[in-house]
Design a protein around this nucleic acid. Sequence first.
DNA 1: TTGTCCATGTTAGCAACGATAACATGCTAT
DNA 2: ATAGCATGTTATCGTTGCTAACATGGACAA
Lengths: 233, 233
Amino acid sequence: MDNRSAILAAATELLETSPNGDISTRGVGEKAGVQQPVIYRLFGDKDSLLAAVVDHGFAEYLEAKRAAVPTADPVADLRRGWDGHTRFALDHPNVYRLMYTPRLTTPPQAVRDARELLRGVLERVAQAGRLAVQPDRAADIVMAANTGVALALLNRPEADRDPELSVRVRDIVLPGILTPEPGADLTTTPPTVAQAATTLGALLRSDRPESFSPAEFALLTEWLTHLATRTNP
Amino acid sequence: MDNRSAILAAATELLETSPNGDISTRGVGEKAGVQQPVIYRLFGDKDSLLAAVVDHGFAEYLEAKRAAVPTADPVADLRRGWDGHTRFALDHPNVYRLMYTPRLTTPPQAVRDARELLRGVLERVAQAGRLAVQPDRAADIVMAANTGVALALLNRPEADRDPELSVRVRDIVLPGILTPEPGADLTTTPPTVAQAATTLGALLRSDRPESFSPAEFALLTEWLTHLATRTNP
DNA sequence: TTGTCCATGTTAGCAACGATAACATGCTAT
DNA sequence: ATAGCATGTTATCGTTGCTAACATGGACAA
């Protein structure tokens, strides 16, 4: 294997299993079977090594996302992108913290890539006539809120994390940058199924009835989400 | 001056003027006119010292806020709290990063205080009948979004920060957890779960979606009926 | 073939860091 | 007065990021 690849792999594994989210160049060299100065010859800097690790780890995620995203419903893609962002943060906490914590002097390319991916989705949302804000502004808004949610989840111990915080903020922020669903009442027409389902879903999330078992509630909310996001007649 | 106070002051000043957001115990000792091990005798740990610096710096902010907040309009207080949060982050970037970056093993008391302050405001909002979500959930939502905005601003170089990002996200998130303004329309008060369930049930009966099997549709309507007839809080 | 240059890797070590052991000092309470 | 304890100092340890100096080996021109 290439020396550079070996170092990258060792650094990645050490970083992902590190309790405090930090690694030492000596540890990386030892695990990669390479002397320490080789790292500095290949990467120049510890920060650059970490940036390379971040870019490498995020590149895989990006590749998987880039292939799956284009759907007929760009708003649904937007929601999916939000959920994927949160999931990536929870799956790779140390990498994610490096991305969105300004400890690195030069922000890694991954954050630019992530924002560009989001901007592309928002562009398609705008072309569908569903975006109420300029795509650039919308990208900043969604990015800030999404990273805020992710970091908030990472900062709490894994036990008492609210598993629905992400979707809660998502279902507040995304409608906040979208135009109302097509078919919405222009004057005082009755609400559509989607609107009623959205309203009921929001009410149930904020005031969950105890009469439902978790499985029942999950199925109900799943149906409500389905009804709220379906293409309206 | 007390040695502890001198160390705290020196550490605070060094931290606020530090380019990378880090300080060294030796530097603190030298600036405070104290030998290095004194820090360890008084604070035990570098992390504890940093936590003390954070708590000290945030305590002043909290004191100023606690005296000014109680107004007749809790929603306005909520908006003010958001703006104050963002301003504090921009005024004390390194302290703020220490607060909401999990580098410290034990999260400083300041984050708990900040959340408690927010929760108090939200409690008053709820008492005014303007809160659509449980105060605890609402606190998590607002906190996540606000810290996300603040960290996003801090991560961009000071030049190309969107000065309106904070109010933009604020004006999306806060209405998302509030009930509509009371003066908007007296007849259209916020719908309860029962109302929303009734509406959705009626709409589904008149426009039955094909994506549900008969059994699924029967269960869904049964649940909606249950939600529509339950005694509402 | 031979000699030169450059990329790559090794050894050794520096300066700074967080942290601690061991000792000195001075105040307080019995 | 003296024992006990809080406080402060000196010296040092182990680790860290990083670099200088030297070694090696292959590519390429003469």
